[in-house]
Design a protein around this nucleic acid. Structure first.
Length: 296
DNA sequence: CGAATGACCTGTGAGC
DNA sequence: TGCTCACAGGTCATTC
């Protein structure tokens, strides 16, 4: 579930709690999530300080004092909850269930990091598609799961030229090409649908049709702008959801309420000058939502 | 090699 | 109420 904006929101929420803090103990309740935990995972983290948190694609990276990097992927249903003296505080509403159970003892609370100062960070993941790994410093770019990942869509390297280069020889439809993490890092089903709608491009169009003699079609510049915009807006909405979530009145500002097409099958297209009906199709086994009237 | 499919898991909502 | 079925924000491994 979590795509780039959700992972970014979670990472930013964990930052103030984890950075500079020592991990007193790690309670590991399973041997594996999607993959087995590395050997001596808990023991290797115990007593060490977290120096820095960052994000690459949909991965959270934690630099650990003394050298190692803790790598985390949330899969579809992974989430973190901070437990402190003042009670639980959830980091985003990315799963429909409650977050961590009381004292981090829910059935799907797989890892608890006990931190100096009294707070705990609980990792909850019902479907267990998430993963954690711990590897030596400096190996990030060579890590099996990180090498081959494409450009960060919010970084300076992302451009119409980059897309044109990647799309030129592609037979796949635009939707599939944008979901390919080797091209652009961090896009998922929701934001690809939303960005394509904003750019008025059909998800079914072949990616290569937006490249002419190796040069990007002007619509690729547009697409780049829309991808950036939708991700930035979603990060902002994720942030406000974080804040609102702690409020007793439960007011929301989450980006899910601003979807133009995602999960809106049969709804009316709100694009300027369009009144088409949102359609759902399946591409590569996954739902695509788009407006056939304005997305060409 | 690229592109399509299966597999990994649990939970939910719709429909009967 | 209780059953079955389709589906869910991801991506790795396998097959063609």
């Amino acid at each position: 579930m979590p795509e780039l904006p959700e992972v970014e929101t979670v990472m930013l929420g964990l930052k103030p709690v984890l950075e500079g803090r020592r991990i007193l103990a790690v309670e590991q309740r399973r041997e594996d999530l999607r993959f087995p935990f590395p050997k001596d995972f808990a023991a290797r983290l115990q007593g060490r300080r977290v120096e820095n948190l960052s994000r690459r694609a949909k991965y959270i990276l934690a630099a650990i004092e003394g050298g190692d990097t803790l790598l985390i992927h949330l899969g579809m249903t992974g989430r973190f909850t901070i437990l402190s003296d003042g009670g639980a505080r959830n980091l985003g509403e990315f799963y429909f269930e409650e977050g961590a159970g009381e004292n981090g003892r829910g059935p799907h609370d797989h890892i608890v990091f006990r931190l100096e100062g009294g707070a705990s960070v609980v990792y909850t993941d019902p479907r267990r598609f998430g993963m954690m790994d711990l590897f030596p410093e400096g190996h990030a770019s060579r890590h099996k799961l990180l090498k081959g990942i494409g450009v960060e869509p919010l970084g300076n390297e992302f451009s119409a030229e980059v897309l044109a280069c990647a799309f030129a020889a592609k037979k796949a439809p635009l939707k599939a090409a944008l979901l390919d993490q080797r091209i652009v890092a961090g896009l998922g089903n929701i934001y690809v649908c939303e960005a394509l709608h904003r750019a008025r491009l059909s998800p079914k169009r072949k990616a290569a049709t937006l490249v002419k003699r190796g040069k990007p079609d002007p619509r690729l510049d547009d697409l780049v702008s829309h991808i950036r915009a939708v991700l930035r807006e979603a990060i902002e909405a994720g942030g406000s959801t974080l804040n609102d979530y702690a409020r007793p009145d439960g007011s929301d500002g989450a980006f899910q309420h601003r979807f133009a097409v995602y999960d809106r099958e049969g709804g009316t297209c709100a694009a300027q000058g369009c009144a088409g009906t949102i359609k759902r199709v399946v591409q590569a086994g996954r739902s695509t939502f788009y407006c056939p009237s304005c997305q060409k």
